[in-house]
Every structure is written in structure tokens, then in C-alpha cells.
Write a protein that binds this DNA or RNA. Structure first.
Lengths: 228, 228
DNA sequence: TAGCAAATGACCCAAAAGGGTTATTGACAG
DNA sequence: CTGTCAATAACCCTTTTGGGTCATTTGCTA
């Protein structure tokens, strides 16, 4: 090599640095072989390893230093969700794409809350997964359309959201109640008499159709009347 | 025409039926002209109308019968969010894609909770919008990568979620409390003495660092100990 | 086997909560 | 200008809560 670095060497070096390092967790050997092949034959992708379970996810990740992990959920001994928890708690910057057959709410929101960066269904084309890896690596959040829709739907509040018609003051009182204030403390906080506080609370209970504080607070939080 | 329908006529008819009907709400004339052009020149797209505000969104929608609506947020007199509320409450099947410069949380989650089906930033390429229209029409949920990421992030619970170490029984009691059960009712429900119920609740308060029912329930719901 | 955590139960007692009834004032709509 | 509604306030009385202290049983673990 010496002093003379060929253009080729430099290009390879550059390519190496811009390669997306990928690890796979998938217990179905057929599928993992297919994925491996696809990744190895995609320009800019570098397959670090293929694992059949998450038992040593942390060790693997430490040595492989992947940019993106493709993670199945249903694997023997240790589910992919546990893998996500473990990896994300130590390497939050590594992108994890769930790649699974599960299209139900349970697993989906469980994974997302644990920090998954994407969620691609296995029934999607493999091309979609390749594209998803790129997206995740660029900071996006690749999701199958069906999944994206579920996620959006989870934000939609039922349009027929009961309108309890609480007044501003009543909501104010309810908030303090949820903070652990007693009637007396509320009255001091709001500069009104304890009797008035009681009045507001009584009205609130009627409107919410509840009969005690804990129930009122639960209903108010769940109904979005007071922020969670 | 008579009895003889030309092949051409039939093909046109078929094409018309498979066309995606699109309406635009955008107060920036320059941009709306650009979008109109792009849509008119995209195969399978049919531009129904371009509006500068949402004042008559409902009327417009009734006559135009669009499949997909591209909706700006910041428009004079009536915001796109009001438009979404109105249109979605009458035509929930019509897909609405927000097309805006706002990338903050406020507008985003507001729109999503009101029923928007997609959220594309104006800084994205117009091509992306065209693609998004197709996706929305096919039941997907097109989002700019940055937006998709925000949405996913909103699911991530802080990993350092305090562990209050409540026992199963304590959680059970807490749940009943949130349902409006008194200590006596809980004791009957669980077939234990009122004193034991009190005991569990006292322990719970200590663990949660609260001093009354409403506060405990609020903290439990917000902390995910009991479901919202 | 000793020890710990969870679940159970009891007693005392003061403070807080909840239900009912009634009333005044100010603001806003018809 | 009259009625409705929100906010304010008071009184009565019973039940519920919540804090403190103490004690027993069971099952799992070090």
C-alpha cells in the first residue's frame, strides 16, 4: 500500500463507511436466508449477522454494532419484544424494525411503546422491507399501510365523545382533586369557600354520573376532560 | 349514440369510474395552481375543485363528491382543522390529507384526533403528495417521515417509568376504587374484610406517595398501572 | 430453617367526603 | 326585562376515609 492509495481503495473505504449495517433476528430459517440474500445483494447494505433468537441480543449488538435491526416477534425462548426492550435501553440510537405476521393491536402498541422504530408485516413484499431499512436508517418510521392506519386510528377519539358539559370552574376543581387536594386546600387555592368547592364537586358528580372522587377522576382522565 | 357504444366510449366510462376524485383547500394561489397542474397531469387523478378556504366545505364536498381531499391548515377565516371536523362528521369515508408547513405537535395531533388520514409537510416534494393521495385512496395513512416519527414517539413511554411495586391485590383494589366502589363494596366484591381493603389502600398510598383516592387513581392511570 | 413479602384482619379516632335543601349575585340570551 | 346558568355560600347529618399501631398466616427464598 505505502503512500499510494488507489482510487479503488478510497472508493471501497468510502463505501464501507456509508454502508448500512444490519442484523437480523428471525427463527424461520427459510425466511432469514431469503432476507440475508436480499440484504447482501442490496447496494449500501451490509449484513452483520442472522440470529434465531434474542437470548444474547445485547452481546450480539455490542459486537456487531448494527445501524438497523430487523426483528421478528414470535421467537422461541425470548420474544422480539424483550429484545427491543433490552437493545433500546442500551443502544437507543439503533433503529429496530419489527418484521412480523402479527397485525393485531396487542403486539403493535406494545412494540411501539417499547421503542420500535418501524413495523412491517411479513405479508408485505421483501422489497418493502429493504425500503423500510433505508427509511429507518434515515430517521423515518416505516410502517405497513395497514399498520400506519391502525396507529392513526388510535388517535381518533370517538366523535360521539360524551359531552359532560362541565364548566371551567368544575374542571379546575376536578384537576386539583386529581392532584390530591382536599376540599379545604382547593378552597384556599381558588380563594372560595369550602362549601362552594363542595358545590362544584357535587355538580360534577351529577354530570359525570359518578358518586365519589376516585371514580370522577378516572372518568375525567379517560374521557379527556383532564389531561393525562 | 343509440344502441352502439363504441369501445372508446366504454373505455372512457371505465376510466372515469376508476378515477380518484380530488378536492384541494389551499389559500396560497401559487401553490394551489401548482398542485392543480400536477394532479390534472397525473393519470387516474381527477381534480374536482380548488378552494381558498373551508367556509363552505360541506357544500363543496356534497357537490364534488371527492375521494381524497388535500387540506391546508392555515387558511383565512376558517382553519383546515375545522374543515376536517365538519367533513369527517358527515363523510367519514372521504380521505383527508393534511398538507401544511406545521411540523409541531399541536396541529399534528389535533388533526389526527379529528380524523385526518394523512399528514404531509409542504417541504416534501410534490411527488410525495401525489403518492400520498394514492396511498390514502387505498386506505393507507401517508405521513412525512418526520411526522411518522413524531407519531411513533408519542407512544414511547419514558423508559425510566417509575416502578411502584404494587402487588396484584393492590392493583385489583385500586381498579375497583377507580370504578367508584367504596371500601365496603370492595370488601364484598373481593370477599375480604373492610379492614383488609383499607390495609391494601394504605399500602398503595405509601407506594405511590399520595394521600387520597383521587390522587392515587390519577397517578395509577397516568402511570399505566391501571388501564385508561 | 430463618426470614421476608404478601395477604389477611382488628381497633382507635379525627378529619374528610357526600347527599339533601335553600339562597344570592352577575352575566348573557331571547 | 325576564328566565336560565354559572359561581358563590351556608347548614344538617351520616358515612367514608385515612393515619397510626399491632398481629397472624402462607408461601417462597436465601
Amino acid at each position: 500500500m505505502g503512500y499510494f492509495l488507489s482510487a479503488n481503495y478510497l472508493r471501497n473505504l468510502y463505501q464501507k463507511e456509508s454502508m448500512i449495517r444490519i442484523s437480523i433476528y428471525e427463527d424461520n430459517t427459510r425466511l432469514s436466508q431469503l432476507l440475508s440474500l436480499m440484504i447482501e445483494n442490496t447496494e449500501g447494505f451490509e449484513l452483520m449477522a442472522c440470529h434465531e433468537n434474542c437470548l444474547e441480543a445485547l452481546q450480539n449488538t455490542r459486537t456487531e454494532r448494527p445501524d438497523v435491526i430487523v426483528m421478528d416477534i414470535d421467537m422461541p425462548q425470548r420474544s422480539g419484544i424483550d429484545g427491543v426492550i433490552e437493545i433500546k435501553s442500551h443502544f437507543p440510537h439503533i433503529k429496530i424494525i419489527m418484521h412480523t405476521v402479527f397485525d393485531g393491536n396487542e403486539h403493535l402498541f406494545d412494540c411501539l411503546s417499547k421503542g420500535a422504530d418501524g413495523y412491517i408485516l411479513k405479508k408485505d413484499s421483501s422489497t418493502r422491507l429493504i425500503q423500510a431499512i433505508k427509511e429507518a436508517n434515515e430517521g423515518g418510521a416505516p410502517m405497513s399501510p395497514f399498520i400506519a392506519n391502525k396507529v392513526l386510528q388510535s388517535f381518533r377519539k370517538p366523535l360521539i365523545q360524551e359531552d359532560f358539559n362541565l364548566t371551567e370552574r368544575e374542571i379546575e376543581v376536578l384537576n386539583l382533586l386529581a392532584k390530591g387536594f382536599s376540599y379545604r386546600m382547593i378552597s384556599i387555592e381558588l380563594n372560595i369557600s369550602v362549601e362552594t368547592v363542595r358545590r362544584h364537586i357535587k355538580n360534577t358528580y351529577q354530570k359525570l354520573h359518578v358518586q365519589c372522587g376516585p371514580e370522577a377522576v378516572a372518568k375525567a382522565i379517560r374521557g379527556g376532560i383532564i389531561q393525562s
